[in-house]
Amino acid sequence: MTKPATDLLTLPRKKLRVMNLLWLVVLIGGLVVSTQVTNTSLPALFANFGNFTEIFVAMAKPDWSYSGTVIPLVIQTIKIAILGTFFGSIVAFVYSLLIARNVIKNRLVTAVLRFVMNIIRTIPDLLLGAIFVAIVGIGPVAGVLALSVFTFGVVVKLFYEAIETIDPGPIEALTAVGANKWQIIQVAILPQVMTYFISYVLYAFEINVRASTVLGYIGAGGIGLYLQQTLQVFDYARTGTIIIIIIVVVVLIDYISSKSREALMR
């Protein structure tokens, strides 16, 4: 309120924001460099777009007689996803209790275990699949193991964050009445986090169903195997059948799972 209203000033020039400019330079530089490194050129894409749409058109005329062959492997795929979710969640459950700082007070233990967790979280699902295929051989077991590790990485972080955000009051109350660690977990912690846990497991299951559909491509069991076979012999009608079935199954499971998560959180 220093200036009297009668004496109006002219608008000063806007100061240049150096940081904004810097971000813009980083963005444009990144675009130029990455376009060169990856040799991406849109003209090349449009020139060959015919090939792309050709495949699409071929896939749009699915070979339904093939679906009888596909269904058993789709079921195997779902089994892989269920088992992967199951094993991964159980390990993650125990592990998350060990890295939650309001359960384990020893900072060194939690720090080391969290470091291991963060490393496991970085490895992508298919990479885990490739490694487990090399270890245990081709087959669904490799898929189950890969998804178990992958699920662990997804849910363990959500789990321990849920544990750390609970109301600390009940823990103190139980410590005060002389409860041991397991009693505290059982009475003060689990009731507060269980619905979250179940919801996260369902969420991981959704991701796993998606992931398991392609695991077979590298030999880790499930429908991905036929995906690879049909693509290798350019039988796009059959590829189309597989993809449509995959999409229907995935969207359906997603829908059911997200609805049950909503019901759970209510």
Partner: peptide, 19 residues
């Protein structure tokens, strides 16, 4: 839900193998 890997293979057909 369209598998990423299949999409990649389709684009390989369009622009050739590579990044």
């Amino acid at each position: 839900s369209f598998p990423e890997i299949v999409l990649a293979l389709m684009f390989i057909k369009a622009v050739g193998p590579g990044s």
